[in-house]
Design a protein around this nucleic acid. Structure first.
Lengths: 108, 108
DNA sequence: CTCTTGTGCTACGTTTTTCGTAGCTATCGC
DNA sequence: GCGATAGCTACGAAAAACGTAGCACAAGAG
C-alpha cells in the first residue's frame, strides 16, 4: 500500500530567500495587477474586479487571500487596501508606468 | 455545423495600456524570476533553468519566447540576456530585494 | 571517423491553475 | 417585507504548468 504521498508544494521558491518568495507571489496571475489597482485607496471586491478586466471571482478571492496572508493587503469596511508595507512596495512599482510607456513607444 | 469559434485570447490587458500589458506579461509564472536571474549577464537555457528552481523546459521556453517577442530578452552565443531596455527595467526591480528582506524581517 | 559532452529545445501525458457563470448569504436603506 | 449591494463559494470546462524523456546539433577529444 502506497504512502499517502509527501504532499509537496508545486509552487516555486525552494530557497526561501525573501526575494524569491516575493517574485513567486507576484508572479501569479493578477497579483501585480491587484497591487497596482489598490495603489490609490481602498476598493471593494467588485470594484477591484471591474478594474481588473473582470477577473473571475474565484481567482480574485484566492489572490486576495494570498496577499492578505502575506501581509500585503488588508480589509476594512472601506474595502481592500494595501498594508503600509505594500504601499511602500507600490511606490517601488510606480516607475514601471513610465518605463512601460517608453517601451511601448520604442516598439511601435 | 458550429462556427469555428471566435478565438479570443484568454489573457488579460484588454485596454492595451502599456502598463497593463507589462503587468500581464510579468504576471506569468517565472517571468519576473527569469528577468531577475538575467540581471548580471547572459545565461544559457540550462543555467537559467538551474537557477530558477528547475522550471520545466517547456514553460521556460514559452516565457523566453514571449520575452523575446516583447523585446525584453535576446539571445546571443553567450546565451540569453536582457536587452538594453530590460536592463533598465531590471534596475527598477532591484529595490525589491531590499524591500523583500525587510518584509521577511517584519513577519518573522 | 567515433565517442562524449553540452547545447537549445520539443513531445506528451499528468496535474494544477484559471476561467466563466450562477448563485448563496449577509447587510443596508426603505 | 423588498430591492440593491456587498463578499464570496461552487463547479464543470479550458488553459497553463508540470516532470520526464529524449531529439538534433555542434564542438572537442581521441
Amino acid at each position: 500500500m502506497p504512502k499517502p504521498a509527501p504532499r509537496r508544494h508545486t509552487r516555486g521558491s525552494q530557497s526561501g530567500r525573501p526575494i524569491m518568495v516575493l517574485l513567486d507571489l507576484l508572479g501569479r496571475r493578477w497579483a501585480l495587477r491587484i497591487l497596482w489597482e489598490l495603489r490609490d485607496g481602498p476598493l471593494t471586491f467588485r470594484a477591484l474586479r471591474d478594474r481588473a478586466d473582470s477577473v473571475s471571482p474565484s481567482v480574485l478571492n484566492t489572490r486576495l487571500r494570498e496577499l492578505r496572508d502575506a501581509g500585503l493587503v488588508e480589509m476594512s469596511n472601506e474595502g481592500y487596501s494595501p498594508t503600509r508595507d505594500a504601499a511602500e512596495l507600490g511606490e517601488l512599482l510606480l516607475p514601471l508606468d513610465g518605463w512601460a510607456k517608453r517601451w511601448a513607444q520604442r516598439r511601435r
